[in-house]
């Protein structure tokens, strides 16, 4: 069994959602993750709120969040257990982030200690 990170990419992190909308997303996200956990395929994860984000650039400059300069932002991630990337893609299908046009879920295998990166 491999582990894969499912990274939620939002096309425009500056979009403001209403509290009701946020609550609905939250429930949908929990239902989606709960469904993965019910198959004993959930390993961990975190939401990454957009507010209070900082970016440190190579010239030591610190900016407030990646917004503006970078078009896509990461809204969170979960780690799942799957036999293959295909299975991880199947698990990702229900992710509510995908309801937003232009949003995506990136699926990346997690390197294990015994493998070369």
């Amino acid at each position: 069994m491999e582990e894969f990170m499912l990274i939620f990419r939002h096309e425009d992190g500056q979009k403001q959602a209403s509290p009701e909308q946020m609550q609905l997303w939250m429930k949908q996200t929990m239902d989606w993750i709960g469904g993965i956990a019910a198959q004993n395929k959930y390993s961990g994860g975190n939401g990454l709120p957009f507010d209070d984000a900082r970016v440190l650039w190579s010239n030591q400059l610190v900016t407030n969040g990646p917004f503006g300069d970078i078009k896509e932002t990461i809204g969170g991630y979960i780690i799942v257990k799957a036999e293959s990337a295909e299975e991880a893609v199947e698990l990702a299908r229900g992710c509510p982030v995908l309801q937003g046009e232009g949003n995506s879920v990136e699926i990346r295998k997690i390197a294990r200690g015994d493998e070369k990166p």
Partner: peptide
């Protein structure tokens, strides 16, 4: 959902 996330 929360229970399963904590422990399957």
């Amino acid at each position: 959902n929360q229970l399963l996330i904590l422990e399957y």
